[in-house]
Amino acid sequence: MQMTREETKWHGDEDTKGGWYVLAHGDEYFTSRHSRIEFVSFEYRISSLAWLRGRITKSVDVELAELRAHRKSGAHRVPGWEGESDLMLDESETVLDTDVRQISAGVIVVAAIAALESLMNQMLNQPNDERVHKAGFTQKARELAARWSAVIDRTELDEHISWLRERRNSFAHRLIDDVDRQWRTSTPPWNFDDEMAGETLARASAVAWILEAGWEHYLGAQGRFTGI
């Protein structure tokens, strides 16, 4: 007998989030209302990123706890190299709590936007849309918003797109140590952390909801079946 999705959520082991399978991790963010392949693919990507976010956060927390336990017990110290041992432990803690957390959050930002761009490209299906495929994230969103202005809240869409774009660009610049000093001083000091990763998934999903409404409107106008 085949299990329902609700049943499969809780059929797992200790390596899953409360026994959930990977796809269930995305349920709090995005579930396609019409089950069209374009949006199901996006749903899978968001679920994967939500799973990755949880696993990275848990892994960092566990390793930090282990390092702090070593510090308390002194198990990390090599006889004759106590100072160096302490320094290496300090540096490991710092890297985990800063670089690893920041890079993992930034990767989720970049990957979520890439998932949205892939989704947009599939809906940019007009004869001359190849040029828009090569355009940036913002231009693609604007093009679709213009086409579906009757059903899209342009203000809400623009706010989400701007938030996502600014943080993606900020992350890219942070990876370049010799970035223009003027750019650094004009950019807000955002914290690339688990909270930002979660908000990124929520905002990317909000954009997908908006796009799904526009896509269904377009298909309906074409006389095509509007899904389930």
Rank of each mutant, 00 (worst) to 15 (best):
S59A: 14
S47F: 01
H173S: 09
S186D: 15
N128S: 14
E216I: 15
T8V: 13
R154Q: 12
E43H: 01
W215R: 09
R131Y: 07
A204F: 02
W10K: 14
Q126D: 13
L175R: 13
H76P: 10
G227Y: 00
D90M: 02
L219G: 05
A75C: 11
W209H: 15
N191K: 14
V22L: 14
E38H: 05
I152L: 13
F137K: 01
R101C: 06
V60S: 00
E143N: 08
S59Y: 02
R45M: 03
A115H: 00
D129V: 07
G198Y: 00
V110L: 13
I152K: 01
W148I: 10
I228M: 04
T98G: 02
I210Q: 06
H160I: 02
E130R: 13
L23S: 09
V100E: 00
K72L: 12
H173A: 12
D129W: 00
S162A: 14
L96Y: 03
G54H: 04
E91N: 06
R224L: 12
V179R: 09
H11Q: 14
E199H: 06
F171E: 03
P188C: 07
V107G: 06
G227L: 01
I228W: 08
Q222T: 06
R184D: 13
S162C: 08
D13G: 11
A24K: 04
T187F: 00
T138G: 03
D97Q: 10
R165D: 10
F30K: 09
D99V: 15
G223E: 04
V151M: 02
L119T: 07
D15V: 10
G220K: 01
A65D: 08
A50Q: 01
H70V: 09
Q139D: 12
V40I: 15
G220A: 09
A141E: 00
A114L: 05
A50G: 00
W51D: 08
G12L: 04
V151G: 05
P189W: 03
Y21P: 05
D158E: 11
L157S: 03
K9D: 12
Q2I: 15
V109H: 00
L67C: 06
Y29W: 05
K58P: 03
W190H: 14
I103L: 12
V110G: 07
L96D: 01
A202L: 07
N128E: 12
H76F: 03
W81C: 11
R68W: 01
D177P: 04
W209P: 00
I37D: 12
P79Q: 07
S41H: 07
R224Y: 10
T226D: 00
A213G: 08
I56P: 01
L116R: 07
D15I: 11
S32K: 04
A112V: 13
R55V: 08
V100C: 07
W183T: 14
